[in-house]
Amino acid sequence: MPSLAVWKFASCDGCQLTILDCEDELLTLAEQVQIATFAEASSAMVGGPYDLSLVEGSITTPSDAERIREIREQSTTLVAIGACATAGGIQALRNFADIGEFTSVVYARPDYIHTLATSTPPSAHVTVDYELRGCPIDRRQLLDTLAALLVGRKPRLPAATVCTECKRSGVACVTVAEGIPCLGPVTHAGCGALCPRHHRGCYGCFGPAEDPNVAGLALKLVDDGMPRADVVLALRTFAAWAEPFRAESRRDEEGEP
């Protein structure tokens, strides 16, 4: 039986919780794989190597930078799950700031804290085989990916935009119909256009789509009345450090037009 390991780095636990949220499939899954290591779910921890590792969270400490290398060496296939593990997560906002100042704001004794100046995804440290986007990941996408890897096919992880998902599902465009700002045109698909379905603009929690025109959308948002400072905030959330969002949010400070 193939072995599965689930690993946590800096994160909220929500993506690994998604595994336990597969209430109808969990016990069947447990018959198909040996859950070798999953600290949140079991105190039995079996040593490597592992056929499949799911990695949640971002790398923020020197020891975690070492640990992700060891996990890579022990894993045949490594799948990064969620915004922290694919873009650095919300905690990557430190990358735009001074970590010393952050530490002194939060902790009375900054000298007790050992942290890196940046929060980065595992892919900045090791080779990652597949990435599941989202804050959190989508349960159906997780199940489909596990099923694919178990039967030896490539997971289906469409690189379309939320905007495309929205059109396909027949939801009225919140921007066109009501002038609600929306990151759907530049955001990676996978959620099923959840926010527009709830009468809300997409807030980008699946990170940038492939080759997104972020600068174009930013101009449109400003044209529609959003202050440029708020556009920067909108790009600096759960996938702030992903290159296309990062570059656009930094355009002003780098002195470009």
């Binding site: 704001v105 939060v106 708020d230």
Partner: peptide, 20 residues
């Protein structure tokens, strides 16, 4: 590992903490 929420909430809009 610490994630510094209270630090990066400074400067955000009052509408954002529900999501952040």
């Amino acid at each position: 590992p610490p994630r510094f929420f209270e630090a990066f909430l400074r400067g955000r809009r009052y509408t954002e903490p529900a999501d952040i």
